[in-house]
Design a protein around this nucleic acid. Structure first.
Lengths: 202, 202
DNA sequence: CGCATAAGTTTCTCCTGTAAACATGGAGGA
DNA sequence: TCCTCCATGTTTACAGGAGAAACTTATGCG
């Protein structure tokens, strides 16, 4: 009972600890210098320990991306409670949530859409990405049913809004939305333009 | 006069050769395993030679990104000759050119918008990016003058269309525009939705 | 108990970026 | 013409990362 929590040799749940450390790094480090050894170091284990839980670096990255999609989905769902005034308002809230998520986790967001995390290989990652995308699809379908959105193919609306939100997020975390280019409040401005194309009349 | 062209020791224009090799690699390699030593190897020089022309890896990357912006601008300009039927058609052509450029140079396009190529540090890179962005701005302003686009703040149109095109390009090169998600022809579909928001009436 | 095994550690090889020291050959002045 | 300087190469060296292999520990199960 000497050092109950210092170093029990067997960490208990190293896998989780490594993931947490890595997520911290991805939220903090803008510079994408993601090193497996650095993760191990910050977690307080030897540099080979992670290999007992992840076949290689890529596998850890994919798991991180998967968690990223899950969390992004949670953020978006939380941001648009069903009692909101309009579907359009829900859309705006979800879009802002997505972009906010990207800005608060730039490294993670980049990872989620990088080729490092190849979704064609990992079915779990693919499913997570699809589930998050499904939130958007559901919102659009609801909006079409209640007449908020134009009755064009829902896949067209999905492609447009997904690209718009993703594009804004990527540009934002790359610090490319400079005022000299796109004015002082580019995100709501851009979303408004898009919504004008998606909504009826007005 | 033994080996006139094999190895003149002094390469002549190694800087250019390195850049060309690197551009090839960025067009070919999807996997973003961009190694300075590999560039040197493929160019046929020692791994330290590049350091005579670029202070470090980042400096080469920034130069590549700069060239990328120049070429992207050229592609877009070529794609929209001034005698096109409508400004809307010009916009579509420029957008397709941008996305096509990304698909043909995925590594380069990623690099251009990665944090590795920090535009806040390199004024030349910043200028090149601004110039390319200026093509879009010019098109939008022309479209507003001739009544094709709504007379809202041009920065709003710029933010929306830039985000849309960039988003589509990023999703395309990440192989995320799967038919199960966004239908068979997501790019024109998405651009149409956006244009409906940017154009008058109809 | 005693041992099989999961979970850590050390050690090793190969690769990368980068610095320093050395080599070469072409251009400009004596 | 020749010598010397210097830009542009090469070799060598070192630190740090990915990952494999061999070794160690402690833990759960008979």
């Amino acid at each position: 009972m000497s050092e109950t929590k210092d170093r029990p040799y067997h960490h208990g749940d190293l896998r989780r600890a490594l993931i947490d450390t890595a997520l911290d790094m991805l939220a903090t480090d803008q510079n994408w210098a993601f090193t497996l050894r650095e993760v191990a170091r910050r977690t307080g284990v030897s540099h080979a320990a992670p290999y007992k839980h992840f076949r290689d670096r890529e596998m850890l990255l994919r798991e991180l991306a998967r968690i990223g999609f899950v969390r992004l989905g949670e953020s978006m769902t939380e941001a648009m409670p069903p009692d909101m005034p309009s579907t359009r308002a829900q859309f705006m809230a979800a879009a802002r949530a997505c972009i906010g998520f990207a800005c608060q986790n730039p490294g993670l967001y980049r990872l989620m859409f990088s080729s490092d995390a190849d979704k064609t290989i990992d079915p779990q990652l693919h499913d997570a990405a699809m589930a998050t995308f499904g939130i958007l699809l559901g919102l659009l379908e609801r909006g079409q049913r209640d007449g908020s959105f134009r009755p064009v193919a829902v896949s067209a609306l999905a492609a447009a809004s997904w690209a718009q939100v993703h594009g804004l997020a990527m540009l934002a975390i790359s610090h490319q939305l400079l005022e000299e280019k796109v004015g002082p409040a580019p995100i709501p401005a851009a979303l408004d333009v898009l919504l004008d194309g998606m909504c009826h009349g007005n």
